[in-house]
Design a protein around this nucleic acid. Structure first.
Length: 280
DNA sequence: ATACGCCCCTGGTGGC
DNA sequence: TGCCACCAGGGGCGTA
């Protein structure tokens, strides 16, 4: 479900309600997520004060004062639901982790498909965690440059779609924002990564940054079940230029007969949307 | 090293 | 109403 903008929005929502609070109670209902959740997790959470949050790629790190940090990944269908203690008679379906703070905030981690993950990590050495170690630069950070992108794409035969989904090249893009950024940069998702010109790469770096920044400002995109922890929906989906718009006219082309509109193709088993005319 | 398919899992939707 | 195929914001792993 969530790509970088959604994860960033979720993290900010958690920050607003949990920062500085002490956790009174934690309950792990299902440890069999993408990987086995450490048995120790509820014990680490219980009694801890929430010190800070950080996002890395699509992961949320919740740091606890004087303890291990908690690593959270939402997978495809994961959500964080904030509410008040006592608000729910019966726990919602697929709520695998429950956290209650001393001041009465209730946080539920809900993930029907269970592609999500929860783990503990060493706060002194976060980035060497197995899941974080291989990640490329943050697309909104200073290390994500034209130079970096041209270096990692050089000589690659893989299509641009796959290259941008590869989290070791750039961390945080997913299926939606790759399509959107490629449209913005006028590059076909089918182009061989190694064939993309320097000028196009420069355009692409800017396109990725702009797309993500605008999506964060919109609170992410709500397609099916994504919502901010507060329950508010994202609204960037209204700004999609190509994602989910197969058959619709491309806003950059004058229309038929020059342009047949937006196409949906399948690359490595997942949908890509693009305009073959505007993105040669 | 690189590229590709498969798989994990549940739920919603649309066709017959 | 039921059944079935297909689709979905991710990503690790095994295989050539």
């Amino acid at each position: 479900m969530p790509e970088l903008p959604e994860v960033e929005t979720v993290m900010r929502g958690l920050e607003a309600r949990l920062l500085g609070r002490r956790i009174a109670r934690a309950e792990l209902r299902r440890p069999d997520l993408r990987w086995k959740v450490p048995q120790a997790l509820p014990g680490v959470l219980q009694g801890a004060r929430v010190a800070s949050f950080r996002r890395r790629a699509k992961y949320i790190l919740m740091r606890l004062e004087g303890r291990q940090s908690v690593l959270i990944h939402l997978g495809m269908s994961g959500r964080m639901n904030l509410g008040s203690v006592g608000q729910n008679e019966a726990p919602p379906a697929h709520e695998h982790l429950l956290i209650e703070t001393e001041d009465g905030t209730r946080l539920g981690f809900v993930d029907p498909r269970r592609f999500g993950a929860l783990d503990l990590l060493d706060p002194a050495d976060e980035d060497s965690h197995k899941l974080l170690a291989g990640l490329g630069p943050e697309p909104l950070g200073a290390e994500f440059t034209e130079d970096h992108l041209s270096r990692v794409l050089a000589g690659r035969h893989t299509p641009m779609k796959a290259a941008l989904l590869d989290q070791s090249n750039v961390a945080g893009l997913g299926n939606i924002y790759v399509s959107e950024a490629l449209f913005r940069a006028h590059i076909s998702p089918q182009r061989r990564a190694g064939d993309v010109t320097q000028a196009e790469i420069a355009l692409l770096v800017a396109a990725i940054r702009a797309t993500l920044t605008e999506a964060i400002a919109a609170g992410g995109s709500t397609l099916r079940d994504y919502a901010q922890p507060s329950g508010e929906l994202g609204y960037f989906q209204h700004n999609f230029k190509v994602y989910g718009r197969a058959g619709e006219p491309c806003e950059r082309c004058p229309g038929p007969p020059g342009c047949a509109g937006i196409m949906r193709i399948v690359q490595s088993g997942r949908s890509s949307f693009y305009c073959p005319t505007a993105q040669p």
